[in-house]
Design a protein around this nucleic acid. Structure first.
Length: 294
DNA sequence: TGCCCCCTGCAG
DNA sequence: CTGCAGGGGGCA
């Protein structure tokens, strides 16, 4: 999915909407997408939302956390009752909630007594390709469970811990790997995916094919800054929508309108005018400007 | 460090 | 029809 900026965008949306709501009911339309016993979370209140790498966490009041990984095609969409008229979604939500790719539905409600009427709302987990998942993890075991990843997760790039020295150290295990492939490894840096990896290399003026061992310290410093900038820009424009991504309101992101290279194969470079090239690296589409990036 | 795989749909 | 798509785990 969704890389760091897209998950961050969803996180920021949900923080405004579902904190304090109680999970009334869970509907598993696609049981294989859900790990854990839904009974454990029924009746619990949402106390917090966080993101780690590309995983979103919904923290509950009973020491449990719901982890979501959207992989390539996942969506998390929240809608209040106002998005339904006569039991049917309003036009702006047509086809999104629910649809044939809806895997899990959480029915939520406000529990405070001061609300005379119980306000219902729904959180939809849609996932066309079914690579994504939702799992229940004990909140105090999140770190030990690597937030749902198989191995340890690297530094958060938007935190102070992400220095160029740390980046250099983590990259040192991938000396023969092309730099663009290496920064996709979540152990090197958390949250960078295929779109922002190409953009980060452009920002740093580094050819994505450059082997890690050939990067100078100067280039590593630029790469660190380039990664941060690409991710910040992604968040600024509400994420990148290639085909599936929408935020928690069902709205697309516009980062790709501002991207320098990703998806711009054969288009002129926004800086020098040369044609952007597309190649395959590590099996993934990779875009770069042959003049700006050396 | 590279493949193959999970699964679905769409563009060429 | 083939190839490709914001990810990443497991295998040799």
């Amino acid at each position: 999915m969704p890389e760091l900026p897209e998950v961050e965008t969803i996180k920021l949306g949900l923080q405004k909407k579902i904190i304090g709501l109680k999970i009334k009911q869970i509907d598993l339309l696609s049981p294989k997408s859900f790990f854990g016993d839904p009974k454990e979370i029924a009746g619990r209140e949402v106390t917090g939302i966080f993101r780690r790498a590309k995983v979103l966490g919904i923290v509950l009041d009973n020491e449990l956390t719901l982890l979501f990984h959207l992989k390539m095609s996942g969506q998390i969409i929240w809608v209040g009752e106002s998005k339904f008229i006569g039991g049917h979604p309003t036009p702006d939500m047509q086809g999104m909630i629910p649809n044939s790719h809806t895997r899990v539905v959480f029915e939520l409600e406000r529990q405070e007594a001061r609300y005379a009427k119980q306000e219902k709302s729904y959180l939809y987990f849609n996932d066309q390709r079914r690579f994504g998942w939702v799992k229940i993890v004990k909140s105090d075991e999140l770190r030990a469970q690597n937030y749902g990843y198989a191995g340890e997760v690297g530094p958060e790039p938007l935190e102070k811990e992400f220095t160029w020295e740390i980046l250099k150290q983590n990259l040192s295990k991938h000396l023969k790997t092309p730099v663009k492939v290496a920064i996709l490894d979540q152990k090197v840096v958390a949250g960078v995916g295929n779109i922002y990896a190409s953009e980060a290399c452009f920002n740093a003026k580094i050819d994505p094919r450059t082997k890690v061992k050939d990067l100078s310290d100067e280039q590593l410093k630029k790469l660190q800054k380039g990664i941060v900038k690409s991710l910040q820009d992604g968040i600024k424009y509400g994420g990148a929508t290639r085909s599936h991504f929408v935020d928690s309101d069902g709205r697309k992101g516009y980062f790709l309108d501002y991207a320098f290279v990703y998806g711009r194969d054969k288009h002129p470079c926004k800086v020098c005018g040369m044609q952007i090239k597309k190649i395959t690296l590590g099996g993934r589409g990779t875009f770069f400007c042959p003049v700006c990036q050396k």
